[in-house]
Design a binder for these strands. Structure first.
Lengths: 218, 218, 218, 218
DNA sequence: GATGAATGAGATTTCATTCAT
DNA sequence: CATGAATGAAATCTCATTCAT
């Protein structure tokens, strides 16, 4: 990883990716698959080239560096991760049939889980590399927190005002909820390679977040 | 990573490490520090040698391969991770002043969190490499599940009989609890580099697991 | 030396060597020259690279390992060693003007000696490494015996039926004749670096094999 | 191999080897065994140390360098190879019941074969290394030829005067006979690992050298 | 655009040798 | 005498990257 600003790269990347050639698609696909399995650092460009049925030079013709190929894999996914939290979507969720945090959480969880599981492989790459590469982390995490945590915080505040939550500082609640969700997704995707996930399990997870595991009827 | 059974390595390793020389200690310390920061794959042995004030050859005289050096870092920590769940310790916990799962969880969490934070650096290496290296994962995870999950399962069953928990299959509860704990530790150590953790936070976490975030008094 | 079956390597090798680049030729030439002089084990790849006017990486790009470079030198020669004994050639020899074993031996010796001396350097490498490297030996010798000894045996049997030979079991005769020929070639090439060999000497050698050194006229 | 004069080393060696300690014996034994199997260049001193049950430092305490260890293995054998040809022994052979070259050859062959097979392992080392290592060869071969070939030449001349041989220049006869004997020993020891050798085979070999393979009664 | 041969910097590994104990 | 930890030079090998075609 060079010390380039990721956001600049993000923009520059967008410009380049006007039209992807067939070869480019194959390269990215192969890269995702192998990065997901063995990790970026343990994957050689020649391996990717072979898997993509492409000459090694072709990779560099399109992506310049291996680092840049990784960004070309990660950034689009990264950008797509946010819209759910975009003002519009957020408002939409809040307006419709979502009247409690439990409902919000269910919608939110289902949405994000679907998104992640529809993009299993890339998600795996993103999680692995963010956890593994300090520089990538220090570039991407701030963006995450600016876009993500702040908005969830805001959402929670709304519901908190309604007195739905226990009396713990919001940011600590956010931390715990996100920890659980992140842990949930990461453990399934990266740790367990468990790509099956049922509606029932999501319900369980929501219940867990909402009410914990204690039996209140006792 | 060779395809050898890790447990064999674990045993072989134990034999070799009769007495550590001063240089060996320096090597392992340097390795832990740099692996923790940059990851195993992004760390060169020459870098370690330099940091340890040692000739590069010395690393290989003692550890044979870079892979083996990683194991020498990971395995001792790995082995030390289990005792808490050993029959004796477990029974001890269960007997004394632990009468509810909440109490058990508090003791357990504090113990494990302390252990992890006392070994921050190694823990970081272990988490990173287990998540990153498929082969390491496939060798270490089974050992974890055999030693860890099964016992937690047993513990939960005991408390479940007492009707302490909601009516969800035990294994699913275990999964969620461990997901949360793992997520909690991993996010703090690897993601946030947040090495501060207060008693208060642990209490919060336990409450979260027990009762979720819903305000029951409403 | 890997423990792979050499014949597999032989085939794999054939596939790879579609077209040799100019640099590859230089590498192989340099390798042969230096291997022949100093032996495989005493030759470093950097030495070969330097002699070939090539970057060291280029060697590994084409041959993967030093072992494989050796095979790329040896195997083509090895394969070319057999044709003389192929059915067609053998029959041709037997039919034409070859009516006695003495004649056969003369043709055979001249042919093989020419082949070896036309490929002095490689032959030297092959002989040295087969004698020196146990694993190479255990892989190549069986192929030799299957292709070579059996056929010579057959040839001898033909002439033996005609009563040309002393009454010693054929296989023992073969052993002695081949021992002499092998000794002859090896000693000239490897031991004495004596690359000159006259028609006269071949005649002498044939006489020696046929009639020994005793003076029958006495 | 340093460029030291081997004969000087031979003498220096003799001085050192006054008394061999127990460890020294083990070292030399281990060295012979492993050198014989894998060759000098493919054997590491640590391997020898392990096989000898000795610390690596001990090897260097006694032999200074790995090269010198090889000489300590080779030279004693080398020196013992000559006595048969020493004036006395030679005369003894010539006087007793040896009246023909055939008889001489039989005695000589039996003697040398016995010597080689009694020292199989060392012989193997010597043959392999003389063939493999150009420098060793250029140091040892001249000594051989001075001590060996010249004397055999002389012997042959004696018998030649008696008209026992075909009319070929003596040195060429010597070359062929020695080629055969050397090929015979080398192929058995180094190539075939065939350590069994019967009286019968020796007789065959002598017949072969004397009369070749042609059937004279035809 | 695409190729793949070539590079060279750097990574891992080996190993004879030294030296303090 | 013997040890074995330590060394560092050199060996094998990897791989992102360049460039002529």
């Amino acid at each position: 990883m060079s010390e380039s600003k990721l956001l600049d790269a993000l923009i520059a990347q967008a410009k380049l990716s006007k039209k992807q050639t067939e070869k480019q698609q194959k390269i990215v696909e192969a890269a995702i698959t192998i990065f997901a399995e063995k990790g970026y650092a343990n994957t050689s460009t020649s391996e990717i080239a072979k898997a993509a049925g492409v000459a090694e030079g072709t990779i560099f013709r399109h992506y310049g560096t291996k680092d840049n190929l990784l960004l070309s894999v990660i950034l689009p996914f990264f950008k797509e991760s946010f819209p759910i939290m975009a003002e519009e979507v957020f408002n939409e969720i809040m307006s419709s049939n979502v009247h409690t945090f439990e409902e919000f959480l269910k919608v939110f969880l289902k949405n994000r889980i679907n998104f992640f599981f529809e993009n299993k492989e890339i998600a795996k790459v993103v999680i692995k590399e963010i956890l593994y590469n300090e520089e990538l982390k220090s570039n991407l995490l701030p963006i995450l927190s600016e876009n993500f945590i702040i908005r969830v915080n805001k959402a929670l505040d709304i519901f908190k005002e309604r007195g739905e939550f226990v009396d713990i500082p919001t940011d600590r609640i956010v931390k715990m909820v996100l920890t659980f969700i992140a842990g949930f997704l990461a453990s399934r995707l990266v740790l367990l390679n468990d790509y099956s996930i049922t509606e029932e399990e999501i319900e369980d997870a929501v219940h867990f977040v909402m009410d914990g595991i204690r039996n209140k009827e006792q």
